[in-house]
Design a protein around this nucleic acid. Structure first.
Lengths: 142, 142
DNA sequence: CTTGACCTTCCAGTCGCTGGAAGCCCCATA
DNA sequence: TATGGGGCTTCCAGCGACTGGAAGGTCAAG
């Protein structure tokens, strides 16, 4: 298979696949014309990578997962540990975003959104240090 | 004020402040020794930027917010629109992360995490295309 | 024989910083 | 007055994970 074939089969852009080769995640053969020649096992790896990436694992984590996948000896506990760490980092990100979300939602609510210039959103952003308490009070009250 | 002063007052690293100058977000004066000389208004801007960044606005959005803040003419509706768009993008990110989270949590649950090599996490990652239905079934059943 | 799709490499850019090197400047202390 | 230590300056490089584009080779169809 050429790169275009594995690209459409795996759903990954050809550029990404070349990049994955460059950083050593896949190692397709080469044909006499210099074209990459992908085996079924390469496609399999790319699918694995695509799915792991879609779950938010970093490239290095993917490399790790792939190595574990190919190591018949490793304990499932090793995989689980990695997955749990990733789960925690997802949870941290979610809660950061939820904090932003709630602050921002309050501000949006408080803003009239009309032709007048007065805007609580900008007022909040411009609040000087030491006004956090007032900020919190406004949120609680609002 | 020198850069170190505004750095500690604003909570932004000096490197970041230099970067903000480079991209035109702040324009401190210069002393005869070449040092940046920050006015109160510069510190004010940096606080504004720090707070907007902490709410997840991109640099370009911050530039926009700052311009709106300094434009006495603009309608609060303009600000509100930008904030609402940002809110939507936060919501999209949260829901992507929640999707990842739930898939991953199921997989982690299903994994014994002991010394044996069999691992549902890797099995899922390695599942070939066309097995999404089974994947969903397993999740629903699990 | 030409067209157009596909493939190759290489370089640059994205975003928002961050680290580090090399070299001034300023102030306090011996 | 020398010295030491901190703070300041500029410039360049790198992070992660691609993505875009240029310049050119290859292949199959008409």
């Amino acid at each position: 298979m050429n790169i275009g074939d594995v690209a459409s089969l795996s759903g990954l852009p050809a550029k990404t696949i070349r990049y994955y080769e460059e950083i050593g995640l896949v190692s397709p053969l080469r044909g006499p014309n210099g074209y990459r020649r992908f085996r079924d096992s390469d496609l399999h790896k790319l699918n694995f990578l695509g799915r792991a990436r879609s779950l938010g694992f970093s490239i290095e984590e993917c490399r790790n997962l792939l190595a574990m996948y190919e190591d018949q000896e490793r304990a499932s506990a090793d995989v689980k540990r990695l997955a749990e760490q990733h789960l925690e980092s997802i949870d941290r990100k979610i809660s950061e975003l939820q904090d932003m979300r709630s602050t921002l939602a309050h501000l949006v609510d408080a803003c009239a959104g009309d032709h007048r210039p007065d805007c609580p959103i900008l007022a909040d952003l411009a609040a000087v240090d030491g006004e956090e308490d007032e900020r919190r009070d406004r949120r609680a009250t609002g």
